[in-house]
Write a protein that binds this DNA or RNA. Structure first.
Length: 731
RNA sequence: GGGCGAUUAGCUCAGUUGGUAGAGCAACUCAUUUACACUGAGAAGGUCAGGGGUUCAAGUCCCUUAUCGCCCACCA
């Protein structure tokens, strides 16, 4: 090319592509264009008002700090879906938001206070909540900043928070409806009590840890019982054995006998039940219904007495006699000593391994307790829903194929979880969250969306499990309980994309809430991604010193487009992704490749005259056909959520066919004047098409390049942004 | 105890309804004021964890074993 042509080429092409320079400016252009908002797309004639819709609600990150590479992966996959669908001309909505995360956020702030030597009770509920809100606000701002850096084309005008006023109204409305339908009840039931966090938690928030302890065999009357927890045994007055156990055939269900126990004689009652495993230990056990779920169930079955042994702080109650007031851990050995002195210890096994339940957030050791709490009944038939229970509604949604889970192996896991589902304890004794919309006055209870007007009512101090409000997310973000246009237009949402680790916590609960409250599924497709790990397979974390823990560091180094490609190519749903910095660097080079190919195309066509139709010669036509064929396949793959395959194809075509073959061929044709107009037109067409098709994957560099392309004939839309161009199904 | 996933080139991973294996990075040879060295051309590298089966044909489907990882579960 001669120097005259160079004047037509923007000067910045003389330097390598700089993602760090371009990306913030490009994002700003998108944001000010308003095209993240489907209403504006319709207003400006980009999208047809009656177009099909495509909607995703962003899994709201917890306001507990900053985003990590796992969030980055989620943003990348969703942004690809959203950009693709927007280019298909659909009314495309992606709603951002953050999650107050109740326990997680509160315990984070409590830990910060601890460093200042303060406890939440020193501040009081109001001041403490202020503190949490301040922390949440700061986290929110960081998260939003990071999200924008990652190029997410979210409609920020619709941003929501799980604890803002609108979502609070949704929560109160849903609670009231469930209460009126008899699905929410308050009852004395066994719950997971966290003595450290001083709150109940759900089964899903338990983390089991293996512990090696001593296992004791005690003489209990004529029987020998085994236990790892002597400190719970004070009130054990039921002794259980299998009805078919020949060793104990002489005893009948209901027989009573007096036995000598820790603090003196006790009247024990024989219970025969097949829950007992005859093979385990001596085949006999005593039960502690107040502090064990299984024992509780048995006690319910036979209407047995239940006695509390341990209080909510983990201390022994007066029933323990001389041990009352002691902490469990301190009491254990002393109790064994006493039993020893009474000759009731038969043997002690060392190194007994068992799992203890701990609280996910506080780390406290869970002590099951019978408490007065609020529950959601998952088995009660619901008249409004054909007498199906919540459990059945959840099963039907997936069984009926109204919801498809990708990869489908998670469907099995989903059903297994539902089959084992028990009533959901939704009340939490923490301050940060949606306060339960129930008021008490003496013996009276009032449940309402608004507080009762009369004097003297006191609201329940407990708050709701954070997943209660998250469960409403697909429709609370669209304005429910108001019957908004958004709700009508965008619900059920198209896709729910998230990590497979919150299948139970969140996805199942959204299905529960939506099928119950609205009678529709919350989304049609669930796409589950895997966990992001460092190249060596370690979990990403700052404490482990993995270089790539902060996505913004990667972006600063290689650009967002490179990170996106590294996260998409070679990644498959449900499987873990080991993020390799070499990989990211490699795709960073691709950005520059696109940049330089653009420069070459611009230089090559600078003198071309496209005002008259140009016929492609047979060789060039064949190249065009090949590209069209590739696009056909890539489009199919995009529709099937196979982004890895589609992205890989486009990447390779651009580099190894367009750049290596077509560009090289065109050099010869143009300089030697062999069908030069055909070569120029092919360059132009292929480049244009590939830039469009690559846009969902590498939005920044493609948008940047698009802005520098000249307007030729009717091939480009005058200065329109690439983000709202049409996806090139065929060129 | 039950269930699931992984095992493919030195490393990290793809492989779309079965049709004699691919990418990135690394390593090798050559080219070099070229749109691009963030380059090009070429070569090399795999008995697809082991064993068995179905099939004209298996990385792909079935059975089984091993190793690693994950999830679920009340064994007192």
């Amino acid at each position: 090319m001669n120097t005259e042509n160079r004047h037509n080429i923007p000067e910045e092409f003389l330097r390598p592509y700089s993602p760090t320079e371009s990306e913030p400016l490009v994002y700003q252009t998108w944001e000010t264009s308003g095209f993240f908002n489907p209403d504006i797309c319709i207003e400006k004639g980009v999208t047809k008002a009656d177009a099909e819709h495509f909607s995703i609600v962003l899994p709201p990150p917890n306001v507990t700090g900053t985003l990590h590479t796992g969030h980055a992966l989620m943003l990348v996959i969703q942004d690809i879906m959203v950009r693709y669908q927007r280019m298909l001309g659909k009314k495309t909505l992606w709603i951002p938001g953050t999650d107050h995360a109740a326990i997680a956020t509160q315990s984070k702030v409590e830990k910060l206070l601890e460093k200042e030597g303060l406890k939440k009770h020193d501040l009081g509920r109001e001041a403490f909540l202020k503190r949490v809100e301040q922390f949440a606000q700061e986290s929110h701002d960081t998260i939003v900043h990071q999200t924008k850096k990652m190029g997410a084309s979210l409609d920020w005008s619709r941003e929501a928070y799980t604890l803002d006023d609108k979502r609070n109204l949704a929560v109160r409305t849903a609670f009231k409806k469930m209460y009126d339908d008899g699905l929410i009840y308050r009852g004395h039931r066994i719950v997971n009590w966290d003595p450290k966090g001083q709150t109940t938690i759900s089964d899903d928030e338990l983390v089991y840890q293996e512990e090696t302890v001593k296992f004791y065999y005690f003489k209990y009357g004529p029987f020998t019982i085994g236990t790892a927890r002597p400190e719970t045994k004070f009130g054990d007055k039921y002794v259980v054995m299998h009805p078919d156990d020949a060793r104990y055939a002489q005893y009948n269900h209901g027989d009573k006998l007096t036995i000598e126990w820790i603090n003196g004689p006790l009247e024990a009652t024989i219970i025969k039940d097949s829950m007992i495993d005859m093979e385990f230990g001596t085949g006999v056990m005593t039960i502690t219904p107040w502090h064990s779920k299984e024992d509780f169930d048995l006690a319910e079955k036979y209407n047995l007495d239940k006695e509390q042994i341990i209080d909510q702080y983990g201390k022994l109650l007066p029933i323990a006699g001389e041990f009352a007031g002691m902490k469990i851990k301190d009491a254990r050995e002393k109790i064994v000593e006493k039993l020893q002195s009474k000759g009731l210890v038969e043997k002690v096994e060392e190194n007994y391994k068992h799992n203890i339940a701990t609280a996910e957030r506080s780390g406290g050791i869970i002590e099951p307790q019978i408490m007065h709490q609020w529950f959601i009944d998952v088995n009660k038939p619901i008249a409004e829903r054909n007498n199906k229970s919540l459990k059945e509604l959840m099963q039907d949604a997936v069984n009926s194929k109204n919801i498809e889970i990708i990869p489908d192996r998670f469907e099995k896991i989903y059903f297994h979880w539902i089959n084992n589902l028990k009533d959901w304890c939704i009340s939490r004794q923490i301050w940060y969250g949606h306060q339960i919309p129930v008021w008490y006055k003496g013996e009276e209870t009032y449940v309402g969306i608004e507080a009762p007007l009369e004097e003297g009512w006191v609201q329940d101090p407990d708050t709701l499990d954070t997943w209660f409000s998250s469960g409403l997310w697909t429709f609370s973000t669209l304005g429910w309980p108001e019957q908004t246009t958004d709700l009508e237009t965008y619900h059920p949402t198209s896709v729910l994309e998230t990590g497979h680790d919150i299948l139970f916590f969140w996805i199942a609960r959204m299905i529960l809430m939506s099928t119950y409250v609205l009678g529709t599924v919350p989304f049609k497709t669930v796409y589950l991604h895997g966990m992001v790990r460092a190249a060596n397979g370690q979990k990403m974390s700052k404490s482990l010193g993995n270089a790539a823990a902060d996505p913004l560091d990667i972006i600063a180094k290689y650009g967002n487009d490179a990170l996106r490609m590294a996260m998409i190519i070679g990644n498959t749903p449900g499987n873990d992704l080991k993020l390799d910095e070499n990989n990211i660097r490699g795709y960073g080079k691709f950005g520059n490749k696109i940049w330089n190919a653009t420069r070459f195309v611009l230089e090559s066509i600078a003198q071309a005259d496209f005002s008259e139709p140009v016929e492609l010669d047979s060789e060039d036509q064949q190249s065009m056909d090949e590209l069209n064929e590739l696009l056909k396949v890539a489009t199919k793959e995009m529709n099937e959520f196979k982004f890895s395959l589609a992205g890989d194809k486009l990447y390779h075509y651009f580099w190894h066919t367009f750049a290596d073959i077509i560009i090289e061929r065109s050099k010869k044709k143009i300089t030697e004047g062999i069908n030069a107009p055909s070569a120029q037109r092919l360059l132009y067409l292929q480049h244009l098409t590939l830039i469009k098709a690559l846009h969902p994957f590498m939005p920044f560099v493609t948008e940047k390049v698009w802005g520098l392309l000249p307007k030729i004939g009717n091939e480009t839309n005058d200065n329109k942004l690439l983000i709202i161009e049409s996806w090139p199904t065929s060129a």
